[in-house]
Every structure is written in C-alpha cells, then in structure tokens.
Design a protein around this nucleic acid. Structure first.
Lengths: 244, 244
DNA sequence: CGATGACTTGACTTCGCTCAAAGACAGTGG
DNA sequence: CCACTGTCTTTGAGCGAAGTCAAGTCATCG
C-alpha cells in the first residue's frame, strides 16, 4: 500500500499536472486532442487532491471495493480490467498521463486498476469533487467532456474487439498507442504492456497476438521489439487498421 | 424529415418525460437504476427542448453531420451505429426511453442514429444545454452521471463482443434487454429489433444469431418468437450469460 | 550461470463465417 | 378474401482463422 504524499519537490509538476485531455464536444480550431483545464482550474484540483506515487505492477484498487476517490494520472501507464468467471481477464482500457479513472457504480469500483509502469496520480475524494463541481460548473463541464471522450474510446474498443482478424485488431491497438504517445507522429511506438496484456485488451489469445506480430513483420508493415514497435510501411499499416 | 413540434397535447407527457435513468456513482439505498431528474429539473429541460416525433426506421442524424443538438428519448427504441469501410455495420448501442444520445466529437456526430420503433424525443440545442449547465450545476451533474453509466454499458458491450461463443453473447444481450424492459423481472423480453440488428450489435453474422437462438431453444433455456423471447430456465440462462 | 518469466512456434480442434437455398411472415393490390 | 412479393428468418455444407495444448527459445535478474 504505497502512500507517498509529495510536496515541495513536486511543485514543478503540479504547475502543469493534474491535467486532462480529450477531443471536445464542440467544434474546435485544431482537429485533435485538447488540453481541457486552465491553469486556474488545475490549481483548484490540486488543492482538492493528494499526490500519490505507485511503483510498477501495483494494484491501485480492486473491483468491488468502496469507491471513495477518482484519480487523474500525472504520468505513467495503468490498466483497468475485470476478471471474468471463466478465469479470463478482459482489459477495458489502458490509461495514460492526463487520463481519468475511478468512476464508480453505486459507490463501488467496477474494474480493478493496476499500474504497468511507475505512476504518479492525483487522488481526489468524490465529496471534494462534487463540492468543487457545485462551485465551478466550468470544471464540471470539462469532466463531462472527458467522460464523453472516454465513452467514444470505449465504443471504438468494442468495434476493435468485434473484428475477426487478429492482424487488424493489433494494428488498431498500435495506432491507438501511437496517437497518445508523447512523440506523436513518430514511427516508433512504445509498448509498455506485455503481450499478454495486449491479448487481454484485444480479446485474443497470447499466441494469436504473437502470430499477428510476426505476420505484420514478415509482410514488412511493422517491426517489433519487446517494448516498442516501429511502423515501416505506413500506407499498408493504416489500411490494415482501417479495414474494420 | 419529420418535424412535428408538439405542445398542449403533450403536457401530460412532459410532466414525467424528459427523464434520465442510470445507476448513480454514489452509494444508493436501492441497488438498481434511479430516476436522475427532479420534477423541477425536467421542467427546465422541457423549456430548452423541442419535442419531436419520428416514425419507425427514420434516420435522426447521420455520422459526420454537424452536431447541434442532443436528444433524450421519451419513448421508443433507436439504434446508434457506424458503417465500416468493409461494408459491415456495427451497432454501438440500442437506446430506450430515458436514454440520451447525440454526444458529439469536435462538433460532429460520430454515429448514425435510426429509429426502430416510433419514437418521441426531446431535442436540446447544445448552446442551450451548456448555458443551462452554467446556471444549474445539479443538472449538469446528472448528465455526468448518465454519461458515466453509458460508459459502463459500453465497456460491458466490449466484454460481450469479446466472447467467442455465440450463445453466450446472445444470452447477454437478452439479459440486457430484459433489464431495461418496462416490466422488469418478467420472463418475457420484447425484441423490437431485427435479427440482423442483433447480429450487428453482437458482432456475429445473422446466421450465427439464428443458430444460437435455436440452440437456446432446443436446450430448453429460452423460447423465441419473432419479436419477443421468454426465459424458460432462468438458472441456466443466467449461467450462460455470466460464463463470459 | 542458473532460474524464472515472457515470448515464439507448431499441430490439432473448434466455432463462426460464407455462400446458397428454402421457409415463414406482413403488407399490397387485384 | 386471397394470391403475390419483398423482407426477414431458418437451415445446410464447406472453409478458414483463432483457440488450445504442448514444446521450445529468449531475456533478465538474482
């Protein structure tokens, strides 16, 4: 149970950090992701938050536990998953810096959340958050915007999992990882999670993921290292991901 | 393009109607779905809304169209879907009375929405809604609550589509339809949509849905009519749906 | 350097998809 | 009132892709 409260040393981070990104609801000048919170809004959130640092592979909370807080990721990667009756594990979503998690159902978390890399997160108690929403409808609107964004991602996930071809599903995952990667546009894609995590996210077996990677490689579309991938033929890569 | 603005005659409806349901995220006394809006809040929404009536099979809006409004369903059933490059259609969600749709991305709708039955819907322009949110953070909170609920449903959908067995997926759909059906708990489940819609929702072929129905029937678990299903052996039905 | 865990590869099975055709149903017009 | 027609649904045969089981390889860390 790590419980490092930080202060002082994190002042530099907090200036930029309890941030949220999404493609907003309304028409925007830029086409893509947008920083949702103003400096002042981040300040207000910081005041309501506790900064926590988790080592890799730490369970932040388990499905079914009482849900007291929501979290915003400062940096790092986590997975949110459910273990099913069959013994299978389905990863609902991978979460990165400026993502939100901990949305509950009737006072209990629905998924288990576990870190993949070391993570810094801002924990905000729900009472504090709802009270803040009362005072600041603008902040509430940004959260709404973020949740709508996450909803679209979840629908996208359902489409991905619905595909029948393993290579296409894998390509869609890679594209998604590329989009949120810090250095967007570069051909290099970091793969912080294991093949097994990828399989659980894609609804494939571990072996199918492995075979699909090798096939993408043999066809000269993507090269794989253990913890990164590199798009070689962008044309065919996009075609593969889009074929749905 | 139906555009019946109603008034007077709909006074009886509007007293109960622009409603929203969800499982809220805070702890609740009752375990299940909750009516989110107070009478006063519904009144405020009505004032911002236009009542529209659509015949069955009407397209409400198409994916990619400029998103000016969100809609709350008064009664009826709609499907929200995307047509993929491959020619396949993936239904993201079926929506019923007291559901919300029209959440956009960067000013454009992401899915096409089409009625299955005749539908009465409350159309609210986004500017009016955001302005209302400014004045009434409580209403905004209820919308947030609803969207979080829809997000959970989408994650559930991804789990369902990820299953490999057609019978199990079908059972999960039936259970979902049963839960939101007006007469909950009854063994009878209305199936307003076609088999083809069910297939598009489940990520199966039409034929697979048909075969799965017949198998559930032969095993004495569910009986099917064209537009309703009836759970015969609830024990095994739940087992089938839960096996994931 | 040996051990543990992560990843790859191969052989076989299973389940859903495709193509094809026939059967049931509802609305239409004679 | 009933035959007709288009749509929706069921059923069958063959195929392909992913799952499972089982080894085998590679890397990392003590």
């Amino acid at each position: 149970m790590p419980d490092d409260r930080r202060h002082g040393g994190t002042a530099i981070h907090t200036a930029h950090e309890p941030a949220l990104v999404a493609v907003p609801f309304l028409k925007t000048s830029g086409s893509g992701l947008v920083e949702l919170l103003s400096h002042a809004q981040r300040e207000q959130l910081v005041r309501a938050a506790v900064v926590r640092e988790f080592p890799a592979r730490t369970v932040v909370y388990r499905a079914g536990a009482p849900a007291d807080s929501v979290f915003i990721i400062g940096h790092g990667v986590v997975k949110s998953y459910r273990d099913l009756a069959s013994g299978r594990r389905r990863i609902a979503v991978f979460l990165f810096a400026r993502d939100l998690f901990g949305l509950a159902e009737a006072g209990h978390y629905v998924n288990t959340v576990q870190t993949i890399t070391p993570v810094r997160a801002y924990e905000i108690r729900v009472e504090a958050l709802t009270e803040l929403f009362q005072r600041e409808p603008d902040i509430e609107l940004q959260f709404l915007c973020k949740v709508v964004h996450v909803l679209r991602d979840a629908q996208h996930h359902a489409i991905m999992v619905g595909r029948r071809d393993a290579m296409g599903r894998l390509a869609m995952l890679l594209r998604m990882l590329q989009r949120q990667s810090p250095a967007r546009g570069r051909a290099d894609i970091p793969l912080p999670m294991s093949r097994s995590d990828m399989a659980n996210y894609l609804g494939l077996s571990l072996e199918a993921v492995s075979r699909a990677s090798r096939r993408l490689e043999r066809q000269g579309i993507v090269e794989f290292g253990r913890h990164e991938a590199r798009v070689v033929d962008r044309q065919r890569f996009e075609a593969m991901a889009a074929a749905a």
